[in-house]
């Protein structure tokens, strides 16, 4: 089993998949724009030009301005930082919890496994959107809490996927050989288990990011997520809806940006799945 060739094959297949590549490049460009937003953005996100007010797209303000005369393009660029940050950090949280949970349950099996997975089953049946809203109400609308809360919701599927993979690996000769040699549990996970389940983890992580971003935007749209003066794409869409009758551009551009990003992430995730796991792509 040659590990590097699996990944080389995957990269080759991924490059051949045009939709996935366009998606991946779009995401990459967005990340770069978000990181360099303070240098790229023509105005500060809070700079107000009250005399100007809401103005349609023009040469000075490429995407127009909002009611307070703030440049929409700049606000979208700064919003990208928040939206993408939520996407990646919350997915990271979900990854850490889900992978550890799945590895422990799958590797130790027996009582431990059945108790841990029963907990996952029970949590699966609960209305999590409501719990996130509950947390935001009780502990205030704090951005780090938002990361943790969303991450704490999204780990369940990850735990199931990882557990199934680990159970498959556990009975292979190289793992049993390592057990006989007395390798400790920690280094067993790090050196032998984790590297072999990176593929499914990568696939699921990529497909979790758009879901997380959707959840954040949903909360921000309801006014329960990101609070002003910070703004995510969800908050911008919220403001856009409030004034869409007179100032359509305030809804159209944030909405378009958000949708394109979700498209790009989904296409890239699908492409990654097809590339790493050609079997499932047949149907």
């Amino acid at each position: 089993m040659n590990n590097s060739s699996l990944w080389q094959d995957a990269v080759r297949r991924l490059i051949q998949n045009r939709a996935a590549m366009i998606g991946g490049i779009t995401v990459l460009v967005l990340i770069i724009l978000a990181i360099f937003a303070p240098w790229i953005a023509p105005y500060s996100y809070s700079y107000q030009n009250l005399d100007l007010g809401a103005s349609p797209p023009s040469a000075e303000h490429l995407l127009g301005t909002d009611v307070l005369g703030r440049d929409l393009l700049s606000r979208l660029l700064y919003g990208a930082r928040i939206s993408l940050l939520v996407g990646f950090v919350a997915t990271g949280v979900a990854l850490v919890i889900g992978v550890s949970w799945g590895i422990i349950a799958g590797y130790f099996g027996g009582r431990v496994d059945s108790i841990m997975m029963r907990i996952v089953d029970v949590l699966y049946g609960l209305p999590f959107i409501i719990f996130i809203i509950l947390l935001m109400v009780i502990f205030g609308r704090n951005i780090w809490l938002l990361f943790a809360a969303i991450g704490a919701v999204e780990w369940l599927t990850m735990a199931r996927i990882v557990r199934a993979q680990v159970i498959g690996l556990k009975n292979q000769e190289f793992v049993q050989a390592a057990q006989v040699m007395g390798v400790s549990n920690i280094s067993m996970f790090r050196r032998h288990i984790l590297p072999n389940i990176l593929g499914p983890i990568a696939i699921y992580a990529t497909l979790t990011i758009p879901q997380v971003m959707l959840l954040e935007a949903f909360l921000s749209f309801l006014g329960l997520g990101i609070q002003p003066p910070m703004s995510s794409w969800g908050t911008l869409i919220r403001y856009g809806v409030e004034s869409m009758e007179e100032y359509y551009w305030l809804l159209i551009y944030p909405g378009l940006t958000f949708t394109i990003t979700l498209f790009a992430l989904n296409f890239f995730g699908d492409g990654l799945r097809d590339a790493l796991d050609p079997k499932t792509s047949d149907n």
Binding site: P210, L214, F218, F221, G234, I237, G255, T259, L262, N266
Partner: peptide
């Protein structure tokens, strides 16, 4: 339908 959220 999957990429355009309800609130949009």
């Amino acid at each position: 339908g999957i990429c355009v959220p309800t609130f949009l």
